[in-house]
Computed example of a mutant assay.
Amino acid sequence: MTPAELAAVQAHLRRLLGNERITLSTPKRKNASVELFVGSEFVGTVHRDTEDGEISYSVQIVVLSEDLSQIN
């Protein structure tokens, strides 16, 4: 993703989810997934896809079973 795309997707996710603590981090390795954070907590990845001339971005959120115990 270009820096402009990264900024646009981050701004959209912040508006959509109502959370200004959402940040996207550029991967250190070329062609690796962009990392999605809420504050300092890694929560998933963002992938760019181009199909039939259309560009889309998908978000994959990771929930660890050990994090579920913090709810109770």
Rank of each mutant, 00 (worst) to 15 (best):
S40D: 13
S40K: 05
I22K: 07
T2L: 10
V62A: 06
A4N: 05
T26G: 12
Y57D: 07
P27M: 00
G18W: 14
Q10V: 09
R48L: 07
V9S: 00
L64N: 02
R15Q: 06
S56I: 00
L64Y: 05
D67M: 00
G18M: 14
S33M: 08
K30P: 03
V62N: 11
T50M: 13
K28N: 13
T23Y: 09
T2Q: 02
F42G: 00
R14S: 07
L64D: 02
G53L: 10
S40M: 01
R29E: 11
A7G: 01
T45S: 05
S33H: 04
R21F: 01
D52R: 15
G18H: 12
H12S: 15
F42T: 07
T26C: 07
K30V: 08
D67R: 04
R48M: 14
R29Q: 00
E5L: 10
F37W: 02
E51N: 13
V62Y: 05
R14M: 13
S69A: 01
N72A: 15
G53K: 09
N31I: 03
H47G: 02
E35S: 12
V34S: 06
L64M: 01
M1G: 03
A32W: 04
L17W: 14
E5M: 12
V46C: 10
V43N: 01
L68M: 10
L6Y: 08
R14P: 06
I71L: 15
L16K: 15
N72W: 02
L13K: 13
I55C: 12
S56K: 04
L13H: 12
Y57I: 04
V63K: 03
V43Y: 01
L17H: 12
